[in-house]
Lab assay of single mutants.
Amino acid sequence: GSLMYASIFGNVSAIIQRLYSGTARYHTQMLRVREFIRFHQIPNPLRQRLEEYFQHAWSYTNGIDMNAVLKGFPECLQADICLHLNRSLLQHCKPFRGATKGCLRALAMKFKTTHAPPGDTLVHAGDLLTALYFISRGSIEILRGDVVVAILGKNDIFGEPLNLYARPGKSNGDVRALTYCDLHKIHRDDLLEVLDMYPEFSDHFWSSLEITFNLRDTNMIPGSPGSTELEGGFSRQRKRKLSFRRRTDKDTEQPGEVSALGPGRAGAGPSSRGRPGGPWGESPSSGPSSPESSEDEGPGRSSSPLRLVPFSSPRPPGEPPGGEPLMEDCEKSSDTCNPLSGAFSGVSNIFSFWGDSRGRQYQELPRCPAPTPSLLNIPLSSPGRRPRGDVESRLDALQRQLNRLETRLSADMATVLQLLQRQMTLVPPAYSAVTTPGPGPTSTSPLLPVSPLPTLTLDSLSQVSQFMACEELPPGAPELPQEGPTRRLSLPGQLGALTSQPLHRHGSDPGS
C-alpha cells in the first residue's frame, strides 16, 4: 500500500510541476520586462504597450523563439521550412505564380514574418522605404497627419515599386495596425538579389506586381527641396563636378596662354591676372594647382613670374625650331616645348642647366612650328573623362623618358669634360720664339709635331656638333674642335714665318 501511495504521489506532483513550468517561465520573463521598464524609466503609455505586446506574443508563440529554433537546422532544411511557412503567400499572390521551385525557395529564405499588435506603428512618415510588405492577416491604416487616407487588409501590398527607383524613397505617411496583424516583408536588397539570379522571372514579377498603396513621397523628385535634403551631399558634389568641367572646357578654348597655377587659371584673360583667384576666387580649394602655386600668395601677385606667355621676339635665322618633346602628345598638341628640351639645344645650356634650372624654367623657349593648343594648358582630366590607368601609364612613360634624357646628358657632359682635359694635357705650358741651342744640326726643328685630335665617332658628340652648327654659343662658352686643319689655341699665330727665318745662335768662333 505504501508503494502504491508513493507512486501516485510522485506522478501527481510531476504533472503539477509540468503544468506550472510554463507559468514560471512566463513570470520570469515578465519580471525581466518590468525590470527593464523600471531601469530605463519608460513612461506609462509606452510601458503599457510593452506589457501588452509581451503578453500577446507569449500567448501567440508560447514563449518560443522561432528564429532561434529555425537557425538550429541546416540551410537546406531551413529553405523547406521557410517554404512551408510562406506557402499561403507564395501560392495566392499573383506576382509569385509561375516561378520555379528554386526561385520560390530563394524568396522564402528572404521573407521575414512580423507580428504587430493593435496601435503599433510599422512605418513612420519620413522613414526610408527599405522593404516591401505583404499583409497575411489583420488590417492596417495609413495616416497623413491625423487623416486616415487608406485601410488595407489581407493580401494587400504596400511599399514602393523598387524597379522604378535606384534609391529608396521616404514614406509619405504613417502605417498603423488596427488589429493583430501578420506581415511578410522582404528587404529591398534581398528581393533585387533574387531577381538578379532569376532574370526570366524578374520581368514577370515586375509586370504582375500591383502595389495597393504606394508609400513613396511624390514630392521626392529631382530638383525638389525634399530631394535635395535626401541627396544633399551627392547633389552638391555633382554640381561641383559639372562646374569644374564647364570651366576646364572654357580653358581649352584659349591656347595662347600657358599658366603654371593649374587648370583653373589657364583660361583667365590678361585683365584677371591681378585678381586673387581668377574664376576660382569664390572657392580657392575647388581646383588643383601645381607646386608653384604656393608662391602666388606673396605680395606682387600681378607681377609674379609664374604666369607664362609666349615671347614675341624673333628667332635667329640659324636657330632650330626646338628640341624633341618629352611626351608623344607634344608633337601634336603643344605650341611651347618643355623646359628640359631647351637644355639640349647647345653645349652652353648643358654647362648651365643644373646651376640655374629654376631660373631657366621661365626663360624664352623655342617654339614648335605648329600653332596647336598648349601642352601645359590642357586641363586636368576628371576620373569620369580619362581612366586612372591611362594617366598612370603616361606618367610612367614620361618618367622613363626623363631617365633616358638624364643618362644621355650625363654621358655627353662626361665626354666633353674628358676631351677638354685631354686638350689641356697635350698642350705645353708655354712657348717662346727663341729656342735653346741643340747639340747638333738636327735641332733646327722649332717644335715637335703635334698629332691632331682623333675624329669623334660617338653619337652623342655628333649631336653636340649638330647643335653647335645651329645654335649661337654665348661669349663665355668653350669652343669644341671642328672639322678641318686643327691648330692649338695656345700656339702663336705666325708659326709659318718662324720656319722661314734663320735661327740666331749665340757662340764663340775658336779662330777669332
Rank of each mutant, 00 (worst) to 15 (best):
G126V: 03
D127I: 01
D127A: 03
L128T: 15
L129I: 13
T130I: 08
A131E: 12
I135E: 02
S139E: 09
I140C: 15
V148E: 03
A150P: 01
A150D: 02
L152G: 02
G153W: 03
K154Q: 14
N155H: 10
F158L: 06
G159N: 01
E160L: 02
Y165G: 11
Y165S: 10
P168E: 05
P168T: 10
K170F: 10
N172M: 14
K185N: 08
L191N: 01
L191F: 03
V194Y: 01
D196F: 08
Y198W: 09
S202A: 12
S202Y: 09
H204C: 10
I211W: 02
F213H: 05
N219E: 13
N219G: 06
S224L: 12
P225W: 12
L230E: 12
F234L: 11
K239H: 12
R245F: 09
R246W: 13
R247F: 10
T248P: 10
D249T: 12
P255F: 07
S259N: 15
P263G: 15
R265P: 12
A268E: 11
R273L: 10
R273P: 08
S283I: 08
S285T: 06
G287T: 15
S289A: 10
S293D: 15
S293L: 04
D296P: 12
E297V: 11
S302L: 06
R307W: 03
R307I: 07
R307G: 11
L308V: 07
F311C: 06
S312W: 03
R315Y: 12
R315Q: 09
P317R: 13
E319V: 13
K332A: 12
N338Q: 12
A343C: 03
S345V: 10
S348W: 04
I350C: 08
I350K: 05
F353E: 07
F353N: 13
D356R: 06
S357V: 09
G359N: 14
E364L: 09
E364D: 09
L365A: 11
C368H: 07
A370Q: 10
T372E: 09
P373N: 13
L375M: 09
L376F: 10
L376G: 11
L380R: 13
R388Q: 04
R388S: 15
R404L: 04
M413F: 12
M413A: 04
L417A: 09
Q423D: 06
M424N: 11
M424C: 13
P428A: 15
P429G: 10
P429V: 12
A430T: 10
A433W: 10
T436L: 08
T436Q: 09
P439S: 13
T442K: 04
S445R: 08
P446E: 06
P452Y: 12
T455P: 08
L456M: 07
T457L: 08
T457K: 13
L458T: 12
D459H: 06
D459F: 01
S460C: 09
L461D: 13
A469Q: 08
E471A: 08
P474K: 07
A477N: 04
P478G: 11
Q482R: 08
P492M: 14
G493D: 07
G493K: 10
G496L: 03
L503E: 13
H504S: 05
R505G: 10
G507I: 11
P510H: 09
P510M: 06
G511K: 05
